[in-house]
């Protein structure tokens, strides 16, 4: 652990990533305490301060109904991170199990499972998510379902390719000769060798899930007002560009910061965990 941190700290880019991710996580966790206007995360109007440019009272300005943008960004991070964590917590195990079984068992299991994966992968992600959201109500839960549906196949494919090459390794043969059960070989022997790649991908994906979720809400298909969400904030503000630029620029920067952080950290982890792509 200490050694890993030292390797990350040695690379300025990875270190930047780690710091950005920590900032985002802290901002989300401490939002109720550090937000200057903690009540502005809901349906509050304060027309006296509507549509203010950045100033001493509202560092990032206010929106059309007078809510503090900085406060809303902090709360929006909560939603983004929650969405990312939940999506990955569901998509990763599903994809991993599918990939492990397809990669290790081969034959029919491989043919059937990987064809299903291919079908999911052949649909453009946003189209798939929009289709799901079109059928379901646009709520936070359904946004999570939609994003999860498009995310797990990527893990299936990643784990499948690793499991397929690990299957040829001598230690798998050794376990087969001993007669270890399939569950042991897949989960106890092969899976530990897939974990570095999975963890690296999860870190990189946190950033991408945040983008996709923001894109969905940008299209009005994600989190609904008045809950603060970075994507819908950008979408709303875009109509008032360039005059009320702060409505879009700050939520946009917030998305950028988070995505950038997770990507840099993910690249750093790849080195630490020795994953080769």
């Amino acid at each position: 652990m200490i050694r890993s941190l030292r390797i990350i700290a040695a690379n300025p880019l990875s270190l930047t990533g780690l710091i950005l991710v920590l900032l985002v996580v802290l901002a989300a966790a401490l939002a109720p305490w550090i937000a200057p206007f903690p009540t502005h995360n809901g349906a509050i109007v304060d027309f006296a301060y509507a549509n203010q440019a950045p100033n001493a009272r509202n560092w990032m300005g206010t929106d059309l109904v007078g809510r503090d943008i900085f406060s809303r960004i902090l709360y929006a991070y909560q939603i983004s991170l929650l969405l990312g964590v939940v999506v990955l917590a569901i998509a990763t195990p599903i994809g991993t199990v599918v990939g492990l079984l397809a990669g290790y068992l081969g034959g029919w299991a491989e043919a059937v499972l990987m064809r299903i994966v291919d079908i999911f992968l052949s649909i453009p992600p946003l189209v798939l998510a929009i289709a799901v959201m079109g059928v379901l109500e646009p709520t936070l839960t359904n946004a999570m379902i939609a994003v999860t549906a498009m995310w797990w196949p990527w893990y299936a494919r990643l784990v499948y390719s690793i499991a397929r090459s690990e299957r040829e390794e001598g230690y798998v043969l050794a376990a087969e000769v001993i007669g270890a059960p399939t569950a042991h070989i897949t989960f106890r022997e092969i899976l530990p060798n897939c974990l570095p790649a999975i963890i690296t991908k999860m870190t990189l994906d946190m950033g991408f899930v945040i983008i996709i979720a923001s894109s969905l809400s940008f299209l009005g298909l994600g989190v609904q007002p008045p809950t603060p969400d970075l994507g819908s904030m950008v979408a709303e503000g875009a109509r008032y560009l360039p005059d009320s630029w702060w409505l879009t620029v700050f939520p946009g920067l917030a998305i950028l910061l988070a995505v950038f952080g997770f990507n840099l950290l993910g690249d750093g982890l790849r080195d630490v965990l020795g994953v080769d792509e």
Binding site: E169, G170, Y171, L173, A174, P192, N193, L195
Partner: peptide, 11 residues
């Protein structure tokens, strides 16, 4: 086995 490097699970 032949190849002692691959015969043991690195993890």
């Amino acid at each position: 086995q032949q190849n002692p490097l691959s015969a043991l699970n690195p993890k």
